[in-house]
Amino acid sequence: MKKLAFGILMGLLVAFTSCLDDDDGYSLGNYWIGFGIYNGDDAGAVSLVMDNGSVLIPVAASSPGWSSHFSDGDRVLVNYTILDDDDTSSAVERYLVKVNDISDVLMKGIMDITEEIEDSIGNDPIIVQDAWISDSLLNFRLKYWGYNKTHFLNLVKEPGELTADDQPFQLELRHNANDDQESIPYTAYVSFSLNSLRVDGLDSVRFEVIATDYDGVAYQDSGVFNYSNLELPTP
């Protein structure tokens, strides 16, 4: 089994055309695509904290008013062009950017599966195309078939307090297709917070994830959630 701790969606986190111009400027023809977190305040200041640690400061956009569709803390997938370096902070890499395109990414926690929610969680097939960890998030690129109904995706575990002896923690990716027709292939990105897996006295935990695809083939993967240098978010 591949290890999620080392998995990364390289094609989305590096520039498709990443060469710099000879005059030390950034080319408007270059663009990058990556995942991050939207930060916004009441004063209208916006930044995007990317998974690689850099911070993007949007100063232009292909669609004016785009930021009104997002809230502080939203998970996003952004296509951007670097216009210049932002030297206001030496602690992290900061860039002034043009936002070419941006979309929200489903982000949620791990659910305890109980008899009361078993039916709504669903047990429809799902194809895992890629999986990787960034910070405290377990990210998936998924494929499923549908038509015109809303599908639901969840990562679940058995109820109860987790202890060190329970490792590796067992997680299952569940899909509810809502009785949709299997007519069109869709790709979905989803991120699940791993913070509920933290155990007092440990700085990392091991887990396994399972799922089942349309041919009845079981997907199984394993990973390590290392939170030794990660602060627990404020509720």
Results as ranks from 00 to 15, higher is better:
residue 166 D to L: 11
residue 114 T to P: 06
residue 81 T to G: 07
residue 27 S to A: 15
residue 101 D to C: 05
residue 183 S to R: 13
residue 192 F to S: 01
residue 177 A to S: 14
residue 76 V to P: 05
residue 210 I to N: 06
residue 160 G to Q: 09
residue 48 L to T: 07
residue 18 S to V: 00
residue 145 W to V: 05
residue 109 G to N: 15
residue 230 L to K: 10
residue 5 A to F: 06
residue 167 Q to F: 08
residue 200 D to Q: 06
residue 112 D to W: 01
residue 205 V to S: 03
residue 101 D to T: 11
residue 22 D to H: 13
residue 48 L to K: 07
residue 217 V to M: 13
residue 114 T to M: 11
residue 83 L to I: 12
residue 138 L to G: 05
residue 194 L to D: 02
residue 7 G to W: 03
residue 62 S to L: 08
residue 217 V to N: 14
residue 230 L to D: 10
residue 6 F to W: 09
residue 136 S to R: 13
residue 177 A to D: 14
residue 220 Q to W: 04
residue 43 A to Q: 11
residue 8 I to K: 15
residue 129 Q to H: 10
residue 7 G to N: 06
residue 53 G to Y: 10
residue 194 L to R: 04
residue 171 L to T: 04
residue 168 P to W: 06
residue 54 S to Q: 08
residue 157 K to E: 09
residue 46 V to Y: 03
residue 88 T to A: 12
residue 32 W to L: 08
residue 137 L to P: 00
residue 54 S to D: 03
residue 230 L to V: 15
residue 92 V to Q: 03
residue 135 D to M: 05
residue 225 F to K: 09
residue 102 I to S: 04
residue 27 S to M: 05
residue 161 E to P: 02
residue 217 V to A: 13
residue 2 K to P: 14
residue 22 D to Y: 13
residue 212 T to V: 12
residue 125 P to V: 03
residue 139 N to I: 02
residue 161 E to N: 12
residue 84 D to R: 11
residue 162 L to V: 12
residue 89 S to Y: 01
residue 48 L to R: 07
residue 158 E to A: 15
residue 207 F to S: 05
residue 72 D to C: 14
residue 170 Q to F: 02
residue 46 V to Q: 03
residue 56 L to G: 04
residue 79 N to H: 10
residue 231 E to Q: 08
residue 97 V to K: 13
residue 195 N to Q: 10
residue 213 D to G: 05
residue 78 V to T: 10
residue 100 N to V: 06
residue 74 D to A: 09
residue 68 S to A: 11
